[in-house]
Design a protein around this nucleic acid. Structure first.
Lengths: 249, 249
DNA sequence: CGGTTCTGTTGACATGGATCAAAGTCACGC
DNA sequence: GCGTGACTTTGATCCATGTCAACAGAACCG
């Protein structure tokens, strides 16, 4: 009595990479697709790639051909300026899309580096463009994903342009916490996959400052940190800390 | 003997807003379109809007419905945080596209304010999505425009995260200069449409610092500034200044 | 055309975060 | 299991930029 619409012989490989059965689907893909559309989407991703900690899935200057959906693990993206400084431009976890920097010039403009052993779904970009011409919901979804990346970047610009060290760290922790919740993890207890230096680079601070502010937050009882293990004790307080100006000073 | 392909009765209004005859076309639109595609594009923009200096074409929280191509004039975009700080997230001149922040949530997340009397072409977003499903070159072009916005934001993050005041100003001036050249203006002499405070906000500096660095650049003979009028005397020197670390310190 | 307000310049001083330095902790390979 | 190197913490000091303040020019408007 199991009525399955349009069952087809699926190879193990195809099943393995099928979006329709992926637990992260609602993060990567539009919701509410018709069965027929979902099937078409399953053609989108044929390949998964793994990256061990420290390896990159693409580097600045590489030809752009695909986007990457983080399937498991954790990534950072960094740009390296001519004079050797590098800037972390983002951290990416399961269900998030990396690689949109490359679309504009057809060359990647940053490195995407795994911060732990990770797996990504390779989304060939030309296929994504083809499919999104046929499936409006996919088109719309993709545009939203890109737009949200822009909005996220604006948030970082606000953070870098006008917040103090404590506010930046508080914002960073609250943001991580939210993203972990959305993935079904604890909002208040997690392991940082990145070093103090990487956090500092992202937030425009030196690693010593990051370390000191963590210690200060711990002294104040807002969090407890031990190396990469963080437990947030007082989320409301951290939220309050973000966007506090002219208070003490 | 004038052989025009597919001439149709064009109202004056239609002709006025037609992309195919717009001097900024190569900045907004894909190049190398077939005649038939170009004609379809002329349906894209039906409306122009003007904004006097200080007026905004949209505000944070407004429902998102369209992108705006700057036809003439100059805009800034700003986000306002709850506690009243605001951050300039970009400056936009002729041929550039504003409004992509709104796609993700269908609400705008920043204000777009005219810094001088300006005119924009209204691009209804649903029509853009429809058309780009039919005209792959338009689809591709639009994706590139969004991607470049992301890359630009990464550049600002680098600037805010790791450059010193002089480097930031130098980068800002060089960037403006490049964009003016691309529009056929002088690379070395232009009017700033924004105040010191707006520059400072964009660059993560206070207006006094901006003013001081301008004065210092002038003392060194790199530029000459008088209020909003800037003349760049030594562009190579400014370029060299960007990404100079561990030199003098 | 004169007053008012916005914008820009410059100086004196304060301070948050950078820098330099040293020691402690952890992870990993042999 | 121990040594080596990567990461983190903490302290002392310094400096680039912020803050506060005063004034000077421009722009605007009745």
């Amino acid at each position: 009595m199991t009525t399955s619409v349009g069952i087809q012989p699926l190879s193990i490989e195809r099943l393995r990479t099928a979006c329709s059965t992926c637990g992260l689907r609602e993060l990567c893909l539009p919701v509410g697709l018709a069965e027929a559309e979902l099937e078409r989407l399953d053609d989108l991703i044929q390949v998964r790639r793994t990256a061990k900690k420290g390896q990159s899935i693409y580097r600045s200057g590489d030809a752009f051909a695909a986007l990457y959906a983080v399937r498991s693990g954790f990534f950072k993206t960094t740009i390296l300026s001519e004079d050797g400084r590098d800037q972390v431009t983002g951290f990416y976890m399961g269900g998030e899309i990396v690689g949109m920097d490359g679309i504009g010039t057809e060359l990647h403009t940053c490195d995407a580096v795994a911060l732990e052993d990770s797996e990504v779904c390779v989304i060939p970009f030309s296929r994504l463009e083809d499919l999104s011409r046929q499936v409006p919901a996919l088109q719309s979804h993709f545009h939203k994903v890109m737009s949200r990346e822009i909005v996220r970047d604006h948030g970082v610009m606000m953070l870098l342009g006008s917040m103090r060290a404590e506010e930046r760290l508080a914002a960073f922790l609250v943001n991580l916490s939210q993203r972990f919740v959305a993935r079904g993890y604890s909002p208040s207890e997690f392991y940082l996959r990145m070093t103090r230096e990487e956090i500092g680079s992202y937030l425009g601070l030196k690693l010593e400052t990051v370390s000191r502010v963590f210690s200060r937050f711990q002294d104040e009882g807002y969090i407890s940190v031990q190396q990469k293990h963080v437990r947030i004790i007082d989320i409301p307080k951290l939220r309050q800390l973000i966007g506090q100006r002219g208070g003490a000073c």
